[in-house]
Amino acid sequence: MSLKIVVLAKQVPDTHNVGKDAMTAEGTINRSALPAIFNPEDLNALEQALRLKDAFPGSTVTILTMGPGRAADVIREGLYRGADNGYLLTDRAFAGADTLATSYALATAIRKIGDYDIIIGGRQAIDGDTAQVGPQVAQKLGLSQVTYAEEILKVENKNITIKRHIDGGVETVVAPLPILITINSSAAPCRPRNARLVMKYKRALGVQEKSALGDQLPYAELYDQRPYLNLAEWSVADVDGDLQQCGLNGSPTKVKAVRNIVFQAKESKTLNGSESDVESLIVELLDNKIIG
């Protein structure tokens, strides 16, 4: 048995490492000051996909991502670790999408890919932490879903057995293929890049990246000799998307207001760590029956 696996991956700003210059004086985000990374839980998902590929020779792993031209990084990273190919959904009309419009775009692209047994992605992306896109894609494709998965235990007779995290515990579920799975951060970490694959794919470029280089593109002749170096990009039209359901148009949620964090300053007592300061604080807390 071989499996056709699609990995949903997102390029995200590294919100866990927000430096001081990441916020402008007006309280908006300076995205260019944040490094773009492969969403961490999507890497956990990639690992589960690659394990299935190891277990079932002949299986294929396809990376699907949506974003600007530079999101081709995500596909390259996937190829370096063992994925077979990838698609970048990229179009101005996809911009400003909330989770619903994002899931619409991904679902249309998956329909275009057509043949699949397993769609797998991270539980959530660190820039939104919503965990919504996976289930929304599953619903749009009419697929069963298993969220918060920690490990794929086995695939047998077109059935998959999965251990998943639940509140306060774990459960094991069995479901028929095809299925959509989202992977929790408690799953196994992704394997590192494979040096041989890095050599093979390091010059792989998306359409936009290539055209940005223009005449400056090094080794231009390679891209005809080695078709796998050309990373596929799909526009709304390529996936037969309905513009009304894409991007800002297709997003029912609107951001009414955004405010920078301003804490209501309390009247606070400032102490240093000296013996007398700590002692008087403890005595005060005891006197007020806060502790003791």
Partner: peptide, 9 residues
Amino acid sequence: FGGNIVATI
């Protein structure tokens, strides 16, 4: 956005 802003949706 990683807690750097509060949004009203």
